[in-house]
Design a protein around this nucleic acid. Sequence first.
RNA 1: GUCCCCAUCGUCUAGUGGCCUAGGACGCCGGCCUCUCACGCCGGUAACACGGGUUCGACUCCCGUUGGGGACGCCA
Length: 468
Amino acid sequence: MTLRTRFAPSPTGFLHIGGARTALFCHLHTRRHQGTFILRIEDTDTERSTQEAVQVILEGLTWMGLPPDEGPHFQSHHTRRYLDVVQEMLAAGHAYVCTCSRERLDAVRERQRETGDKPRYDGHCRNANLSPGAEPHVIRFRTPQEGEISWDDKIQETIRFANSELDDLILVRSDGSPTYNLAVAVDDHDMGITLVIRGEDHISNTPRQMHLFRAMGWEVPEYAHMPLLHGSDGAKLSKRHGAVSVLQYREEGFLPSAINNYLARLGWSHGEQEIFTMAELEQLFDVSQLGRSAAIFDRAKLLWINGHHIRAATPEQLLPELAMQLARLGIDPPPSTEELAPILPEFQARAATMVEMAQKCRFLFIDSVLPYEEKAARKHLTPGVQAPLSALATALDALPEWLTPAIEGAFQANLAAHNLTMGQLAQPVRVALTGSGASPGIFETMVMLGKQKTVQRIQAGVVWLRGA
RNA sequence: GUCCCCAUCGUCUAGUGGCCUAGGACGCCGGCCUCUCACGCCGGUAACACGGGUUCGACUCCCGUUGGGGACGCCA
């Protein structure tokens, strides 16, 4: 039987990092086993589902490089089918009409909490044999009360629940709409899903869905419940942890390959390898090798991995992102690919994110670097360097060609003339050129900047010194 | 509270009864390289939650305790 998995987000918000991890694991595991990866939008909650959210989820998956092989399917298109299934269950006695009011339900739960029981439906209408009349009612599943239900989870071990722990879940709401567990079971069956990969927060739904399968005589799929992603406080990742849209990570200058690499290493490992390409992951990752404990999202390590991927990336991957980040820094219009291509290598090893890279090469695309970073100016632009700086500007200006050997020659001559060491002159020049005390090599920086700007900025430094 | 799941350095992990005086990675701290910053390289810091078993021998198996997480909706 060929593998069929699905990723089933509900379109009530953006695709956050936890959801992305689930999608990634579904995708990787499916690729490895040459299966089919299906996207299903769980929009049975018409109140909260939006078209925009669907769009954002799709965008997120695309950016992550996790396009589905099939779908997206929409549960809202399957309502008829769900209701038909419920009719069958009703006819077979697997479901029944319940007219309990919300008030009564609340009261029951309240009482159960007080007595220390697990809040659940008390079966009030279970044997009342009500027929669907004008009175408001829901349809509930008649959950078996004896025995237990269990499954061999592909990630966890065997998980078992006593049926007495389960209550009679609602299949159809009083407004006639189907609920989550019903829709999931029907779709997982109809779509031929053979392996359900989802977060372990769904473990308690699994016995309910399995009972639905059994009632309909369907074959139950396999399940793999992956450990959750936690924030630094150890609790399930949520908005207050900055568990924002994956697209936000793009804004922050992360590469999708790095995010995927990092996410995959949370709960999974392959020897002592830390850096993986997407192709490697697709070949190596298997959900059955996942660890069983929750992992804490660690931005520091993500940054390190992102730096690796930036260094390993091709210009084609990086250039558009760099241009975008420069634009966000106010470089308008952003430099062209042709302008950016030659400087890219100088900054690849110096940035952990594309945002950082843009900040570090920004000085190349603005008119003036003034005002200087205060600390750098105070440390390096001292009165003593005014004369050498001035002389250097003159010498550089007189250069017939702007190539490294010539620049270096002029620089070295100036060093000797003023009896200075490399560092004593390079740092002041660096501040004049970039506004900061850190940049690529000083000659490389001058070449990238061009003769005109280089000379201008050194002269501006001299002027600044006179005023200081 | 009830049910379910989990438990090795701060974090991610290796470890499947002797190879472990517990390995790697991030972070942090030193050093090297060096015109600065990175990159790279070298070194250091730091963990088997606790208590009982089982066994000639437990990080590894079993039980309990503690701790953490998740689920308890006419949400998904």
